[in-house]
Amino acid sequence: MNPEIKCWNCSNTFKKFSFFCSECNIIQKPLDLDSFKLFNLNYGFSINLKKLEYEYYALQKMLHPDKFINSTEKELLYAQIHSSNLNNAYNTLVNPVSRSNELLKCKGEKNKESETFNDLEVLNEVLDLQEVAENINCQKEKDNLINELNQTIEEDVEKLNNYFIEEQLLNAKKLTVKISYLEKLQKDIKNNVTFTN
């Protein structure tokens, strides 16, 4: 059950968080919400990114601190916090890896990033790809590998979506780590980091 939220200005109460009071229209106190709740989304991996982007811009337009320049200090501060929270939440939701990690956290299966990962199947696959990347010596090979990684990531994100639909959270966790490795590798290849060997 959501506890009731009370407007700090007019004491109107509401059940669900809202950026503005429905009675007095005053900006509300920021709450510590996860990225899904902040955007009023259900806990699911599949989200409509176009709609999210639209929503993000619409909210930022209403909550931009510049709009509160003539308001009280308190309202300006609230706007600054909301605005920063929205940026963070939007960035979290846009990327599949961070979205998945956020969702796993909300579902109580947080990926502990500081812990050593030891799934041999995933690590061997990543190691093989890293070795391929290491031996790249022309642009064509580089392009091919980037394309291959793109395709693998795309397929894995699709698979990840299914894991969430079927609530296979442990598999989702593992696959998220794998995708994060692939994204990192792809970035390294693009930045030519792997050529330095």
Binding site: N111, E113, V122, L127, K184, D188
Partner: peptide, 13 residues
């Protein structure tokens, strides 16, 4: 031994 640190994308064999 094959281990990884997902946070920084490290793989160590």
């Amino acid at each position: 031994g094959l281990v990884g640190a997902p946070a920084c994308g490290d793989v160590m064999k």
